Simulated assay, not measured.
Amino acid sequence: MVRTKLGKLTSTLMIGGVALAVASTALAAGKISGKTERMVRSDYVTSLEGKTVAYVPISLGLPLSDYWHYGIQSSAEAAGMTFVVKDPAWKVDAMTQAISALISENVDYLVVQNPDVQVLAKLLKKAEENGTHVIQLNMASNYRSSAFVGVDWVSHGEEIGEDIVKECGTGSGKSGKVAIVQGELTAAANVWFNAGLKKALGEDSAITIVNDQAAQWDATKAHDITAAVLQQNPDLCATAGVWGIMMLGSGQAVKEAGLSDQVLVYGSGSNSRPICDALESGIMDKHFSYDSILQGRDVVNAIQVIAQTGAAPGEKPFALYSPIMVHDAKTIKATDCYDLIVN
Rank of each mutant, 00 (worst) to 15 (best):
I225V: 11
M14F: 12
A147V: 01
V53Y: 03
E167T: 10
E37K: 14
I225M: 08
D152M: 03
I209W: 03
V18T: 09
V299A: 08
D224Q: 15
S155I: 07
I160V: 15
T46N: 14
D116I: 05
K91P: 00
K8P: 01
E105Y: 07
S272Q: 10
K255N: 11
I324L: 15
I103R: 09
G269Y: 07
E77P: 01
D66V: 04
K166Y: 11
T82Y: 03
T226P: 01
G296C: 13
P313L: 05
T4S: 11
V92A: 08
K125W: 05
D108R: 06
A29S: 11
S33F: 12
Q213K: 14
Y321H: 13
S268L: 04
Q231R: 10
G71L: 09
Y109R: 02
L137V: 01
V85K: 10
A311T: 14
G196R: 09
L102M: 12
V181L: 12
M39S: 05
G171Q: 13
D116G: 09
L137T: 04
V342R: 15
A28I: 10
A29P: 00
G161V: 02
L264N: 05
D285V: 08
Y55A: 05
G296I: 13
E105Q: 15
P323S: 12
G183D: 06
